[in-house]
């Protein structure tokens, strides 16, 4: 989590450790820039599933986080780049890759 550069004051939600979540999966929103993970679970309704799958993000997709701040997350899936709001990023669970 040290890559944040927010400074000691702004820990907020970022003080969770990966082991706090069961199954070694964490919401995408909590991955720091530069880290990667595979999607393990999508916590959303049908409409959202089909939208994500249609865009190329499904269980098993390998995601790399490029940026993460108060606005949302920017990710790379293969050679496709996406911008997600924080809300959306909290619904996608990934297994981080070391």
């Amino acid at each position: 989590m040290g890559a944040w550069g927010f400074g000691k004051k702004r820990r907020g939600i970022f003080h969770h450790k990966e082991s706090d979540f069961g199954n070694n999966e964490i919401p995408l929103a909590l991955l720091s820039p530069g880290s990667e993970g595979t999607v393990s679970h999508i916590n959303a309704g049908r409409g959202l599933w089909s939208k994500l799958f249609g865009m190329g993000i499904g269980v098993g997709s390998r995601i790399k986080v490029l940026a993460n701040d108060y606005r949302g997350i920017i990710i790379l899936v293969g050679n496709m780049k996406f911008a997600l709001g924080r809300g959306m990023a909290m619904k996608i669970f990934v297994k981080p890759l070391k």
Binding site: K81, A83, L84
Partner: peptide
């Protein structure tokens, strides 16, 4: 929820 592709 917001998701948008960022094309090249």
């Amino acid at each position: 929820p917001f998701i948008m592709e960022l094309p090249n």
